[in-house]
Amino acid sequence: MQKKHKKKNSQLLIRINDEEKARFVDLCEELDTSAAREVRRFIRRFLEEHESKETS
């Protein structure tokens, strides 16, 4: 069974140090993932963690 993904129709612009960005992108490539995928995963986990605390 495949998850239904919501359409990605928005962008989030962040400012980050050039060196940190390069290290992040390089590590993502080594781990066979993308920087965008990992940022989206972080956002989803962050929302789950903090929204569940609000309802508790």
Rank of each mutant, 00 (worst) to 15 (best):
M1T: 09
M1R: 05
Q2Y: 15
Q2W: 13
Q2K: 11
K3R: 13
K4R: 14
K4Q: 13
K4A: 08
H5C: 11
H5S: 14
K6Y: 07
K6L: 11
K7R: 13
K7Q: 11
K7F: 10
K8Q: 15
K8I: 13
S10W: 14
Q11W: 06
Q11M: 10
Q11P: 00
L13S: 12
L13C: 07
L13E: 14
I14F: 06
I14E: 06
I14A: 01
R15Y: 08
R15F: 02
R15H: 06
R15E: 07
I16C: 06
I16M: 13
I16K: 02
I16H: 01
N17V: 02
N17Q: 06
N17F: 05
N17R: 04
N17L: 07
N17K: 05
D18W: 02
D18P: 03
E19T: 07
E19F: 05
E19H: 03
E20T: 04
K21H: 05
K21I: 01
A22G: 02
R23Y: 04
R23G: 02
R23Q: 07
F24Q: 00
F24V: 01
F24I: 01
F24N: 01
D26K: 09
D26R: 08
D26P: 00
L27C: 11
C28H: 00
C28W: 00
E29L: 12
E29N: 08
E29W: 02
E30M: 08
E30W: 03
E30L: 12
E30F: 07
E30G: 03
E30T: 04
L31F: 04
L31C: 11
D32C: 12
D32F: 03
T33G: 02
T33M: 10
T33N: 03
T33V: 12
T33R: 04
S34M: 04
A35R: 01
A36I: 05
A36L: 07
A36Q: 08
A36C: 10
R37T: 13
E38K: 03
E38D: 12
E38N: 04
E38Q: 11
V39H: 00
V39I: 15
R40W: 04
R40N: 11
R40D: 11
R40G: 03
R40E: 15
R41E: 15
R41P: 00
F42K: 02
F42W: 13
I43G: 04
I43M: 10
R44S: 09
R44P: 00
R44Y: 06
R45P: 00
R45T: 04
R45N: 14
R45S: 09
F46H: 09
F46L: 08
F46Q: 03
F46C: 01
F46T: 01
F46M: 04
F46D: 07
L47T: 06
L47M: 11
E48Q: 10
E48G: 02
E48D: 15
E49R: 06
E49Q: 08
H50N: 15
E51L: 15
E51Y: 10
E51P: 00
S52C: 05
K53E: 15
K53D: 12
K53W: 05
T55P: 00
T55Y: 10
T55E: 15
T55V: 13
